[in-house]
């Protein structure tokens, strides 16, 4: 019970009055890789921002290491964030810094390590993602997959105990996807960290995570290990896992009756 490093408790949140999360409950056990899945716009990114304390819940709470995130003052929040690494959807590398400086950034900001030590650490992290040779390139010179890997090296620069990934596979070719999957798993296990992976790539994700939460309509609609979910007959999970266009998650944006709309303006 105490070994959940992140706990989300009855969490509600909305932008400008529009409810996005309506009472979400999740736990993230230490050492595991847990996926949060759901359609686009279901509030997955927002959930990561709530965990990181960039947004305040309207109800409920997020606890990281037993501390309620939105009760922290600035220093408390900084302390919590020092334990987190986050990989943003498109990497969010600093475009004015080289690959090397991007990875060195958190070290320079938060430690007083001498330059030789920083150099060794940066090269170690870049080596772990296979990009030691790209250290002197600028972010604009990288492909999408490479940028993602550099961002990953930067996210783990200070050996965080929680690593969050926002759609790490979006827009990657199948080979890079496999590479990133393996990296997430191996970094998690090497650092003894806990990983939270937000994604909607069922097949890739099911191959390497320990546990999965499905969110839809602002709540957790299903959860379980990949194996349990593959055999689940919940309609939502079935639709998602088998990639069906229409189902509980509708293909159509809410619209007036099709026939009525076609007939409007015709004198019948």
């Amino acid at each position: 019970m105490t070994d959940n490093i992140v706990e989300i408790d009855n969490l509600s949140f909305g932008y400008k009055g529009r409810q996005l999360h309506k009472g979400i409950n999740m736990v993230f056990p230490r050492g595991k890789v847990v996926a949060i899945m759901g359609g686009s716009g279901s509030g997955k990114t927002t959930l990561l921002r709530l965990i990181g304390g960039q947004l305040k819940p309207t109800r409920g709470e997020v606890r990281v290491g037993g501390k309620v995130v939105h009760h922290q003052d600035r220093d408390g929040l900084h302390t919590l964030r020092r334990k987190m690494g986050m990989l943003f959807q498109f990497g969010a590398l600093f475009t004015d810094l080289s690959v090397y400086e991007n990875v060195a950034f958190p070290m320079r900001e938060h430690t007083d390590l001498p330059e030789t030590m920083i150099r060794d650490l940066v090269m170690m992290k870049l080596n772990a993602v296979g990009l030691r040779g790209a250290a002197q390139l600028m972010p604009t010179e990288l492909s999408g997959g490479m940028a993602r890997r550099v961002a990953l090296a930067r996210a783990v620069a200070l050996d965080p105990s929680i690593i969050m990934y926002d759609e790490p596979f979006a827009g990657l070719d199948p080979i890079s996807m496999g590479v990133v999957c393996n990296l997430i798993r191996s970094l998690n296990d090497a650092l003894g960290a806990t990983s939270i992976v937000v994604t909607h790539d069922v097949h890739e994700t099911f191959s390497f995570v320990d546990y999965v939460y499905f969110v839809g309509n602002g709540v957790v609609v299903a959860e379980g290990t990949p194996d349990e979910l593959r055999h689940s007959d919940l309609p939502f999970v079935h639709q998602f896992v088998h990639g069906e266009a229409d189902g509980p998650v509708p293909f159509h944006y809410p619209a007036p009756d099709y026939a009525a709309e076609m007939l409007r303006g015709h004198n019948v």
Partner: peptide, 8 residues
């Protein structure tokens, strides 16, 4: 945002 999440 990334910077903020790095406690900077």
């Amino acid at each position: 945002s990334a910077m903020e999440m790095m406690a900077v």
